[in-house]
Simulated scan of single mutants.
Amino acid sequence: MTAEALAVPAEPAPSHGRLVPVTVHFDDLDALGLLHNARYPVMVERAWSALWHERGLSFEGDWAAAGDFCNAVKEFTITYDAPVKRPGAYAVSLWLERLGRTGLTYGFRFCSADGSLTYAHGTRVLVRLDPATLRPAPWSERFRALGQDLLRPRG
């Protein structure tokens, strides 16, 4: 049975979130020719970085200047639904589950380029930090505005 046959079909395209293209390269595969489990989170992070950069937010490497990028991962969960068995074009579906005062939870699906097949899914919890104290700090109003269309509707 092929990986495509094992992949979990996607739910109908959500009205929230965004499908971001990613590329799996030959060197992302493990010794068995499967996408290495540690590469999924890297690809998800790259997709988020590309999405925020496209929206005008970028990280320059300075904690004090990082703004909303001064954050830390509190929790990361992932479920591997089916193996990715070849390099090529794929996508990551991204959305915000919750956008709190100092924290947020985002959801993701690592999927086929068109979003029709799911290979892995999960969530990640981030906490915005004050660069001087490394204590929780509120997200900026700009960040909140830029993330509104990514929020999953409640109810």
Score class of each variant (00 low, 15 high):
G103Y: 00
P83E: 04
L104H: 10
L96I: 13
L104F: 05
V73L: 13
R86Y: 03
K85W: 10
L104W: 07
P87E: 15
R86D: 04
T77Q: 09
P87Q: 14
G100R: 06
L96Y: 05
I78Q: 03
V84N: 11
R98P: 00
T105W: 01
G100A: 13
V73S: 11
Y106D: 13
Y90D: 14
D81C: 15
L94A: 05
Y106W: 14
V84D: 12
R86T: 09
G103M: 00
K85E: 15
G107D: 05
G107M: 06
T105H: 00
Y80W: 14
K74F: 09
Y90M: 11
G100T: 06
K85R: 13
W95Y: 15
L94W: 07
E97D: 13
Y90V: 10
T102I: 13
A82I: 05
A91M: 01
Y80S: 08
Y90S: 09
V84G: 09
L96W: 06
T77V: 02
K74M: 15
Y90K: 05
Y90C: 11
G100S: 12
F108V: 07
K85H: 09
D81Y: 07
G100F: 04
T77K: 06
E75T: 07
S93V: 04
S93A: 13
I78N: 03
P87A: 15
R101Y: 08
Y90R: 03
L104T: 04
A91R: 00
Y80K: 08
T102G: 12
W95H: 15
I78M: 08
V84I: 15
G100Q: 08
L104E: 10
T105N: 02
A82V: 04
T77H: 10
R98L: 05
T105I: 10
L94P: 06
L96Q: 06
Y80C: 09
A91P: 02
R86W: 04
V92C: 04
E97R: 02
Y106G: 02
R98N: 02
G107F: 02
F76D: 10
F108L: 12
G107I: 03
K85G: 14
G107T: 03
L94H: 07
A82Q: 02
F108H: 12
P87I: 09
L96H: 05
P87V: 12
V84L: 13
E75G: 05
L104M: 15
T77A: 07
F108W: 14
G107N: 05
R101W: 09
F76S: 15
T79F: 02
P83L: 04
E75D: 14
Y106R: 13
L99Q: 09
P87M: 12
L96R: 06
D81E: 15
A82G: 03
K74T: 11
T77F: 03
F108I: 08
T79V: 05
P87K: 08
R98G: 00
V84A: 09
L94E: 06
G103H: 00
K85Q: 14
G103K: 01
Y106P: 03
P83I: 03
P87F: 09
G100M: 07
K85D: 14
A82H: 03
T105K: 00
L104V: 03
F108K: 12
G103F: 00
R86G: 08
I78P: 01
R86M: 08
A89M: 02
T79S: 11
R98A: 06
R101F: 09
E97K: 00
A89F: 01
